[in-house]
Computed example of a mutant assay.
Amino acid sequence: MAIHIFATGTSRGIGNAILDRFGREDVKIVGHRSNPADGDASIVADLSDPTAPRRAWEQALETLDGRIDVLINNAGVFEAVSIDAPDAAWADAWSRTMQINLQASADLCRLAVLHFRRHGGGRIVNVASRAAYRGDSPAHWHYAASKAGMIGMTKSIARGYAAENILAFAVCPGFTMTGMADDYLASRGGDKLLADIPLGRVAQPEEIAETVKFLALDAPPSMTGAVLDVNGASYVR
């Protein structure tokens, strides 16, 4: 019986690589994007809307014949806000980042756990960030905080529901060659940032997708709660 997977944030970058990687496996996967695109069968939901996670989950369930075995939370935003910004702009930036990166992921994890409890278990893979552990730039406090929250949530799920065969893992990429990272590398001086990566290059989306695939399909149950770093040794724990 094919594994049924719902993955968020699959329109580009890491998410698109995840779709491609699972396309080579005996699985049925449905993706998600924020805006509609011609010829794309992904579920469309703007996760900045607090009602969107449930609607997306229910659409995924319908598409996947009422059963989801693996949830992959990859959707996220990486948007700068200066500490010198007006109070309202600062608060809006924090609210939007936390809603998309953390709250929507939490809502989907909750729905997944409730569903898995009725179907004998399942797996959650959360795509977090190196920033969860080492922080980020002065303009990205909120991004780092949201990803740290995702790690804490993943570990809590792993500890709380392992006895019910509900497993949770996280991946922490460093810089990855996506649209978000390209812009950031350019704005912060690419050569200087690359010098901080012992491997000498940023990760490719396909490397993150391979790690996600391992956790979703192959990782032994005793690995539940694990966080895998994929950052070229730019941060080691």
Rank of each mutant, 00 (worst) to 15 (best):
S95G: 07
V30I: 15
G232L: 07
A181N: 05
H32Q: 14
P86S: 00
D65I: 00
R24M: 03
I29C: 02
R54I: 01
A89S: 11
D191S: 09
A93W: 02
N165Q: 14
V77P: 13
L215H: 06
E25N: 02
G179N: 13
L114C: 02
N35I: 08
H115W: 03
K213F: 00
K28F: 00
I68Q: 01
V77M: 14
N231E: 11
H115E: 02
A226V: 09
L108M: 14
W57Y: 09
R134V: 05
S105L: 13
G9Y: 13
H140A: 04
V212G: 03
G66D: 03
V202K: 02
E206W: 00
R96I: 01
I83D: 14
R33T: 10
D196P: 00
L199P: 02
I100H: 07
D87A: 14
Y184Q: 13
F214W: 12
H32A: 09
N16E: 15
V44E: 13
A219I: 02
Y161L: 05
G13I: 07
F78L: 14
V30S: 05
G13E: 00
V227P: 05
A106G: 06
L215N: 04
A131Y: 04
R117F: 01
I18F: 01
D87C: 03
T211N: 02
L217I: 02
T63V: 05
R54H: 10
D218S: 04
A170Q: 05
T97N: 08
R118L: 06
H142Q: 15
T224Q: 08
R118E: 12
I68R: 01
R24P: 00
G179D: 15
R54M: 10
M98V: 12
I83M: 12
C109G: 04
L47S: 08
A2I: 00
V70S: 04
G39C: 10
P36D: 11
R67W: 00
T211V: 11
A80K: 15
R55L: 12
R201E: 07
L111E: 06
A106E: 05
H32T: 09
M153S: 05
R12N: 13
G9Q: 13
V81P: 02
R159C: 11
W94I: 12
H119M: 03
A144N: 08
Y161F: 15
Q103K: 07
V127A: 05
A91L: 14
D229Y: 01
G122D: 04
Q204D: 09
T176E: 07
T224S: 15
S146E: 11
A195Y: 01
H119V: 01
K147L: 08
I83W: 04
L61P: 04
G23N: 06
P36I: 05
L71K: 06
A85L: 09
A132K: 09
A89R: 07
N35T: 15
H115V: 03
G232S: 11
Y133H: 13
N126C: 11
W141N: 08
A85D: 15
A144R: 07
V230S: 06
L215E: 07
C109Q: 11
P138L: 10
D49M: 10
R24E: 05
V77I: 15
A131C: 08
V127L: 10
A209L: 03
Y143I: 06
A170I: 08
